[in-house]
Amino acid sequence: MYNYNNYLQNDYVRNTTPNSMMNNNQPNLYTPQEGYDKGNLFANLYQPYKNYQPPTLKSRTEKGKLFLELSRYAFAAHELNLYLDIHPDDATMLALFNDYRVRANNLMMEYEKKYGPLTVSSDDLSSSFLWEKEEWPWEGGAN
């Protein structure tokens, strides 16, 4: 007998049903590192495209490593920010948001102190106006 359950569970059907992008309401988080590589901190929402695998981001330089770490925690905090906009009473997510937010802020200060300002309000502009001297993101600066 033909097993229709298998048919309904097959990937093609699952990936082409209109509901395939729907939230199953069970937040299940990736680490900031894996979430940043994937572009999605919420494992329950992750939808790959075909067989494409997102690249694993790495850096060989100290500057690049610090920048990547900052990008990961800033992204993770932003993902929880969007979640908390609609679920402001979720205490677990709020605690995690605050953890990632503080880490991102500290990494930002550390990066700016060592390698120059990322914002024009940075304390590291007091002795010389480095804002204008640093490279811009589309030219491969801080990237």
């Binding site: 939230n23 994937k38 572009g39 919420f42 929402l45 609609i86």
Partner: peptide, 30 residues
């Protein structure tokens, strides 16, 4: 993504595509 084979282009496009998935779900919840 279907129209290129340059991994330097595919990486950011996969990432941006995934952001649409997340945003869709947040808007759906709202």
């Amino acid at each position: 993504i279907d129209l290129t084979d340059d991994p330097d282009v595919i990486g950011p496009l996969l990432w941006l595509r995934q952001r649409e998935v997340v945003h869709y779900n947040r808007f759906k919840e709202l």
